[in-house]
Design a binder for these strands. Sequence first.
DNA 1: GTTGACCTTAGACTCAACTCTAAGGTTTAT
DNA 2: ATAAACCTTAGAGTTGAGTCTAAGGTCAAC
Lengths: 144, 144
Amino acid sequence: MLKISELSARTGLSAHTLRFYEKNGLITASNHSEAGYRFYTDADVRRAEFVKTARNSGFSLEDIGQLLSVRVDKLSHSCQQVTDITQHKLDEVNGKIAELQSLQQTLTILLESCCGGPENATHCSIMEALEEGEFRNNAGRETS
Amino acid sequence: MLKISELSARTGLSAHTLRFYEKNGLITASNHSEAGYRFYTDADVRRAEFVKTARNSGFSLEDIGQLLSVRVDKLSHSCQQVTDITQHKLDEVNGKIAELQSLQQTLTILLESCCGGPENATHCSIMEALEEGEFRNNAGRETS
DNA sequence: GTTGACCTTAGACTCAACTCTAAGGTTTAT
DNA sequence: ATAAACCTTAGAGTTGAGTCTAAGGTCAAC
Ligand SMILES: [Zn+2]
Ligand SMILES: [Zn+2]
Ligand SMILES: [Zn+2]
Ligand SMILES: [Zn+2]
């Protein structure tokens, strides 16, 4: 039976976070002292570690809630339900990567066009590109 | 002289957003009617378009504030200051991409290991991997 | 028998960039 | 002269995942 600070030490999740997760239905202490202190069993520890792993894998707390309900009753959930959650997350991640790569390209083109030197910015091609509004594929070299 | 709704139509930024940007020092109307209505000049329109382009390039409002101060006084700012802002943003974007790619790999490995079928999740390898906690390079095939 | 470390709760605050609401004033057209 | 369509402000709400505070109760050690 661990106190909250001990579970915190085991999992690396802060006591605050553990209480927050409890409020959100993810992790509950199986036992309580008379005074109301939380006491966590080994099963609680495993559940908390599962939550932490899932969180580190990028799942949202809502996703984790679903994964946990699979976990407590594997017989009435299917592999498909699990892959659905995972695939959905992967789609989301892929989407964000694509967005960021487009941004990356834009910024790279901007950077390549500017001399980056100590001269004043009167003819800075980054400024010109931002002024133009169209630069995703035509940022020219510094003029002058 | 454009009213706020007209500037909104020109730029695609909502009137709400334009007022919000004003509160944050990005875009101000050069003129006002007696009753206090904002009236925007052509220069204001260009400034607003600059802000919009910068925003679409991924710059934060704070970054945009800095870019705008370069813009209004190019002589006392250098190309280097502009590249610093841009490079910093690019580093940030690259960092996020790397994080997401690591997530992407994790999720892909998880997905590849699971059959995704309608059978129950008793031996689901995604669940097992999350239970294990270590799966970034060793997620095995579904164990029957 | 009290200090100090720990625990409890409810609820406020953080970040960023909006987004919306309430309550009211103005302009334009009919 | 009145309704519709616009404008103003201050300020609250949204999102997600925490993070922190206040005000107090409990427990172990010395
Ligand atoms: Zn230069
Ligand atoms: Zn430059
Ligand atoms: Zn399966
Ligand atoms: Zn499976």
